[in-house]
Structures are given as C-alpha cells and as structure tokens.
Design a protein around this nucleic acid. Sequence first.
DNA 1: TATGTATTTAAGTATTTGCTTAAATAAGAA
DNA 2: TTCTTATTTAAGCAAATACTTAAATACATA
Lengths: 124, 124
Amino acid sequence: MENNSCIRQQADIEQIDRCKESVSELDESFDYLANGLSLVGNSVRLKILYLLFIEKRLCVCDLSDILGMNISAISQHLRKMKDRNLLETERDAQTIFYSLTAEYEKLLNPFFEILDKNKILETI
Amino acid sequence: MENNSCIRQQADIEQIDRCKESVSELDESFDYLANGLSLVGNSVRLKILYLLFIEKRLCVCDLSDILGMNISAISQHLRKMKDRNLLETERDAQTIFYSLTAEYEKLLNPFFEILDKNKILETI
DNA sequence: TATGTATTTAAGTATTTGCTTAAATAAGAA
DNA sequence: TTCTTATTTAAGCAAATACTTAAATACATA
C-alpha cells in the first residue's frame, strides 16, 4: 500500500476530511450493499432474478431447463442469493420453489422494468 | 454442460418455453446490465460512486487520499466505470475531475439514499 | 424396506478480478 | 528544455468466482 498519498498542494482539505469521515461511518454499509449488488451483477443470477420477478416462483429444475445450465450450477447461484436474503424458498413435496423477497422485488424493480421494456441498450 | 435437463414429468412446459424465449430475446440486455451492476457491486467502486454523488466531482488524487488507496488502483477502477459510461471526466489543467453521468446518478439514486440515511443494515 | 426424483454439497479447475510495482504519458512551471 | 505534478498503462501475482463432476441428502412412492 505505497504511493497512497498525493503530493499536491491545492486540495480541499476540509472536503477530504469530510469525505474520509463519511466513508468510515458507512463502511459496513458499503460492504454489505456492494455484496448484494455483486450478486445481481452476474448475468446468470440477473436472469434468475428477472425470471422470478416475472413468474413469481420457479424450482431449480425449471431454471436449469430455461437457462440450459447444469442443475448444480443453478443451485449454487440460488444458495448465494438465498443466503443474502434476495430469495426465499417454499417446499412443495420434493420440489423447492424459489421466489424474490419483497425487499429485493422492490429494490430491483427499476432494473426489471428497463429489461421488460427491452430498452436497456438505448437508455443506459 | 451435462446434466442440464430435468427428468421430471410435472413441469409447466408452456411456462418453460415462454421463459426460454424471453431470456433469449433479452440476452444481450442481461449481459450489458449485469456488467454495469457488477461495477457497482464492488465496495471500492461503490464508495467512489457515492463520494461523487455527494461531492459532485473529485480527482484521482482526492479519491486516493480519501480511501487510503494506491493512485493506480483508483485510476483503474475509474477507467472501468468511465468505459462503461458510469462516469465522465473534465480536465482542469493537470487535474482530471471525475463525475457521475446523469443516467447513473438517477439510476443509483435509490441506493445512495439508503446509504445516506445509514439505514442499509435495517432495511436490506 | 428399496427405488426414483429433486436438490444440495464438496472438491477440483480454469477464468476473472483487484491490487502492486514500475514505467509511460500529459501538462504546467522554472 | 528540464523538472515537477497528475494520471494512466502494462505486467505480474494472489485471491475470488463460476462451473464441472461426483457424492450426499431429502422426500415420495412402490
């Protein structure tokens, strides 16, 4: 961690200090939120989230069929999202259905709407 | 890519097909959006984005000071975000100021507000 | 009980990512 | 031009990530 300080004279010291303080106050929040967003920032998981948004609930098998991917790979993605409370499960005999938690359905709504309108490439 | 199909009989074939179609239609959009979100889903970059949201513009040096990180590391994060149009630059003599693009300022606003209220740990 | 279906978990591997170091580029001042 | 400051870029390495394969667990039914 060398070279981590600047030599310049013209810098707004007050601004730097204010920023340092606000970052250190929110430090855990940044880590937590970034972790949640990194889960969404993967195209396989984003597809899963979108599909659950549209279809309300799906099982591992369904998602495996739809995405043409190994069941185990899907299951591992689902586990990560369940552990971070993006998803919740509901058992129906042998089948385990996954669905979006209410909080993330709401939080991700703007992104899903963009996808839904297929306008992503124009607007972002 | 073995074991990617399920054996079960009870599956909503129509649902599966509908989902397959909608995923394949939006395929590029998923990749593009996931890539954007993966940039935000890193705590260093999230901090940078938040700081730019609050302070409007900062240079590499400022961010290096604030985050206590190597200038080169910061510069590489900034480049990624600039390449993906999350950030834009403005030169003032030797100093290059980075700021949020209008689109991402708007899109990320809900997340910044959560951070701003320091309510992240309670609400998500 | 044994058998089949649904899902998860563990271990291994290949790719990606973030950071470090050092060198390169850009612009202002002496 | 040379020197200093500001920033970027390239190369290398260590840690994280996604996927594969194989084995384990859970539940229903014969």
